[in-house]
């Protein structure tokens, strides 16, 4: 199947071409954030303060890696469940966040924000942290170091594989996939 190489931060016109089911290979810069970091980012927004990095046009990867061995860039580095970030996500999208990488489906509110603000939600394959770590070329903590594994990191990635799960047209990979293979209702 076709795979589209894309660069992160993702240009607005590229977002329009990312339809549900499109396979992508992401290269460039992404930022990590999990539950604790999301909580803080939204607290900052609520105070009308400035975020620890410019989120405009950026990509968030819901990921907290295992520690690197000496000489390694990063340890195992796969996605965590995106649904836990759902309540924090619409304000971040409104603040300029353009793409998210995680696993599992999103809430209605997030899907609406994705349509409204021309954003994209991509899924990486959960539980393939060893495989995905190969795509990460550089990693540095840029905010909230006290959160340890949940600190915000700036990652440089090369050909990180993902699949478009929610697009600006309202498509949802989880609903479509399930509808196609469901045998009967319980």
């Amino acid at each position: 199947m076709d795979v589209m190489p894309i660069t992160s931060p993702i240009e607005a016109e590229v977002i329009e071409r990312l339809t549900v089911g499109t396979r992508v290979l992401i290269s460039g810069v992404v930022y990590t954030a999990r539950d604790a970091a999301h909580q803080r980012l939204v607290q900052v927004l609520n105070r009308d303060d400035s975020l620890p990095f410019d989120i405009n046009g950026q990509t968030l990867y819901y990921m907290g890696p295992s520690p690197p061995r000496p000489g390694q860039v990063i340890g195992s580095a796969g996605p965590t469940t995106s649904g836990r970030m759902d309540t924090y996500t619409p304000p971040l999208i409104a603040a300029g966040l353009r793409a998210m990488i995680g696993k599992g489906n999103r809430s209605l509110e997030v899907r609406e924000a994705i349509k409204k603000y021309k954003t994209v939600y991509l899924v990486a394959i959960g539980g393939t942290g060893a495989l995905l770590s190969r795509a990460i070329k550089k990693a540095e903590v840029i905010a909230y170091p006290d959160l340890g594994v949940e600190a915000i990191m700036r990652l440089e990635v090369k050909d990180l594989p993902a699949i478009v799960a929610n697009d600006i047209y309202g498509g949802d990979l989880f609903e479509q996939g399930r509808a196609r293979y469901r045998k009967r209702r319980y």
Partner: peptide, 27 residues
Amino acid sequence: SPLGKEVLGQLIENARIAQEERLPLCQ
């Protein structure tokens, strides 16, 4: 599902890498 098949293949490949490189199967 062809995509499902491909994903399962990646899980198997991930297990091979984890064992060979002594990297956690999952973070």
